[in-house]
Design a protein around this nucleic acid. Sequence first.
DNA 1: GTCTATAAGAAGATAGAC
DNA 2: GTCTATCTTCTTATAGAC
Lengths: 208, 208
Amino acid sequence: MDTKQRILDEALTLFSQKGYANVYVNDIAEKVGIKAPSLYKHYKNKKAIFDAIIEEMNNRFAIQAKNLNIIGNDPAADARIYESLSEEEMIKLGFDLFEYYIHDDYVKRFRKMLTIEQFHNKELADTYTKLYVDDPLLYQGLLLGQVVSSGGLSTENVDIMTLHFFAPIYMLLTMCDRNPEREPEAFKILESHIRQFNKLYSRKRKEV
Amino acid sequence: MDTKQRILDEALTLFSQKGYANVYVNDIAEKVGIKAPSLYKHYKNKKAIFDAIIEEMNNRFAIQAKNLNIIGNDPAADARIYESLSEEEMIKLGFDLFEYYIHDDYVKRFRKMLTIEQFHNKELADTYTKLYVDDPLLYQGLLLGQVVSSGGLSTENVDIMTLHFFAPIYMLLTMCDRNPEREPEAFKILESHIRQFNKLYSRKRKEV
DNA sequence: GTCTATAAGAAGATAGAC
DNA sequence: GTCTATCTTCTTATAGAC
């Protein structure tokens, strides 16, 4: 990895741990293994490093989206796989999604940075809500909607059903960002959540 | 309100907007209407102001807990009220809980500050998880458990049922902290969520 | 308890040699 | 592209008068 990219990587690590204002250009330079003034040959100033991270994330977005949405970014195609899933297979998919969110290092550091900086300006707030609320609900909603259409699950309100599926995952995810030592517990809860979700919305039951 | 208290109040407002490191003692003094050096007659240093906010929150906790747990901190007594609730009454309770979290200014500013500072050290991370994950799940779990015992709702796993009730509220809450302009939308989703939750776990349906 | 003046140090950024 | 030396500004905190 070239120096310009390594600066972004080390800066993201530090920003995600301490927040933008608590990280000094000297800290970043030290991690990269150069002196602070050398940073200015690659980026105009500290703010430009932060902006480059945000921009790079937007560039990576197309790739990330595929993994974010359980299988791919073609919900209709995904649903064809999904509708034939047993409960065990559904749990595996949930685990894979959760693992990706939690252990993909770039995704995790970026989310933590955004968590810290979300109140700094409206653009960052909107980015957070899009990436971790609206987009997951949109894509998983399309997916679950297909499963409902094909009779795998049953509900009168797919949006709320999707909220019931995703909100516990979101809550466990943000908890693990703070308390990684509770990951094993989170996985157990996640499994119980998906099992109960499945039974609650099973087509074998009366419609809600 | 005396100066010592006003310092805490203005500091909390600023910390919740910008984070600890982005707030300068001069900013706090300006808001209070005094000069920066005068702050040091009330608090040893900037850190002491932050610590005093955390400590004050712990002191207010007994009072807050009553409102946090829907009605009071006696789940058995609350459940006696709760089990006789219609769906409309349950929605009103959910709205009151949500309104409290969102519009109680002190509670909201403190939560935002903790959101920003949660990765700074383990103590703050644990405080966040206790206040906004473990405690709500504990108290609402006791409450819902009583409703299940008395036949108002039905489930095999009260903990997951409680997660299904609370996680969407938590997600909407943190979204409104970031995007207050979306509060009306959040209230509509909240209402739909509680209606669907009620139907899913109604005792009239097959047990899950 | 509040002020003005100021010390002490930290942090961002630039100049110019190599 | 990286370095050393240095500038400037910002920020915390203290001294001492009122």
